[in-house]
Design a protein around this nucleic acid. Sequence first.
DNA 1: CCTTATCGTTGGAACGTTCCAAGTTTCATG
DNA 2: CATGAAACTTGGAACGTTCCAACGATAAGG
Lengths: 351, 351
Amino acid sequence: MPTPARLTINDVARAAGVSRGTVSNVFSHPERVRPELRERVETVARDIGYGGPDPRGRLLRRGKFGAVGYVVPGAYGFVNLIESPFGREMLLGVADACDAAGISLTLIDGRAAQIEAAVDNALVDGLIIGTAGSAPVIERAMRRGMRVAIVDVAADAAISSVSIDAVTGAKLAARHLLDLGHRRFAIVSVRRTQGEPIDHAPGRRTTTLRDGGPLDREKLRGYSEALTAAGLDINAMPVLETVPWQADIGPALFAAAPDATAILVMSDRQAMTILRDFARLGRRVPEQASIVGFDGVPDGAAALPPLTTIEQPTREKARRATELALSAGPAQHSMLSVKLLVRASSGPAPA
Amino acid sequence: MPTPARLTINDVARAAGVSRGTVSNVFSHPERVRPELRERVETVARDIGYGGPDPRGRLLRRGKFGAVGYVVPGAYGFVNLIESPFGREMLLGVADACDAAGISLTLIDGRAAQIEAAVDNALVDGLIIGTAGSAPVIERAMRRGMRVAIVDVAADAAISSVSIDAVTGAKLAARHLLDLGHRRFAIVSVRRTQGEPIDHAPGRRTTTLRDGGPLDREKLRGYSEALTAAGLDINAMPVLETVPWQADIGPALFAAAPDATAILVMSDRQAMTILRDFARLGRRVPEQASIVGFDGVPDGAAALPPLTTIEQPTREKARRATELALSAGPAQHSMLSVKLLVRASSGPAPA
DNA sequence: CCTTATCGTTGGAACGTTCCAAGTTTCATG
DNA sequence: CATGAAACTTGGAACGTTCCAACGATAAGG
């Protein structure tokens, strides 16, 4: 038989000989209905094939969607979100928080051409914005009356945000290597302009950071302050700019800074790429060069050698962002602290 | 100033001195409104701070959500979804299809205790079900009038499905190794009962497949048929049962089948774990043992050595499932074909 | 100037639900 | 058996939009 024109709460009410309101209560506030009647209504509903209240009607009346959107904007978008272990941790944290709150999670693809329309039509109460660069998205969301929570970007005071203390983290990393006796540093940074190659020029010295990741500036500042305090000048150090998905950082780095014994980076991802590259190049870590990562992704523990890194509470950050994107009330800002996690990729400076 | 009680299309209509219907048209069918009037209404809307039609009202009237849900049910759930490269490919494929169709994507966590409530309240037109084992979910979804598309599971004829020709794939893999002269096989299968350890017993011979992955039975059948056709008996071969996230397959496999030169598995993931384990054990691939994977995940190309595998069109499968979950009309079933991808993990049988 | 066709605009009627004030029943109590 | 309180049920009124039949204006053709 053909689909029998969608059943509504009214059909059930008629069939069971009760009022619309009662049927609604049976499904949405069972405790308000006498058990005996409730059971009768439930039976009738099952018999005629009614599967419970349609979210459409409920939505309009109740006002709440019971969902948050997770926007991954910017040039890297979706692939990066789940390709990078960091992105994965974020998503998992968000999913956890959603599950705990009993709401659903809508992914909004930042690559999408129709990103603005997507935000306009998104069936969500709040938006979690994963990385920088989406002013129009934020504006539209606010206009719609959504809560917005931004991750890792210092935003408008009116918009909730969660971030980490990247400056302190970077200092921790640099000091750790300084304490181990290192004096010859190299720094790997991220250049976010798509398609540009690594700068291989060996003699290049630069601190110019173009289109960096949201916290790259803070990290660089932390490195700079710690190194300066130790009497070193970051401006005299080799700084290698890469794109985030770049594979051959290691060779380029070695070419640019063959004598560096201490390597500071912007992410675990970079650090692990370098670890792999160095292994291939026969450059031993930590005997010849020490590396400290940044993020504390799970894979770091399984790297060869296991990665010393600055661990940030990624899941906690995601959870917190989700809560903010869900909560009413004034905007809140939190900054989570990070800690040094010493593993095997860092060791004493070679004599 | 406090939030000024949500603005509606009515407020705009009043402020602009036109009817509700006209304002609706301005936003949803601009071509129906005289340009001059349209512009006036748009200006007024902007001035009073109206940000476009609320999806709630639209939804009720229009009926369509413009969204699909991607359910990841079963024991492994969300973590597995994005942790495994295969799961990632699926998600990416679904996301692509959604983007192309201009709809949004809701993730439904199969781990969730309230999975049924989640399905009941999901604001989606259709559901993509990623793996087996969710009869109640399917039933609820159908009841709600959602389209359902199942991936990799032969389901009810009334429910659309997308699958791959796993039997042929498995035969291809086995024949490839047979053609290379191999005669001593070992098979790694998946046991899906959570928490159970690998069976280390060296002499164990079994083909019992408990709670296998959706296509594991087909793969095993394909292996069996190809091997039988070559005069070998799969029942006499060592079959190692593992759990999907098991790390130490390699040692267990070597213990169970030290003389096997050809290894057949259920997934690339397993194959790559074995590759890593064998490297650690000093067992050379393909000189001492050949391995053929199954799935064709991108990471396989970067493995050491690059993995010979049965490549399935994962993204295409995801895309197709998404389309089915979106399309009206009778249920459809497709089976996509796979192909052998020869790389470096397979070679001639040792003399 | 009237007719007719065309293009724009209007306002009533849904869409399926939940809320809520008011009405009805039930039940313990005096 | 009357009373009052508590428990339960009812039906009208939203919620914000889009649809659609009908109406009004405008322009072209006679």
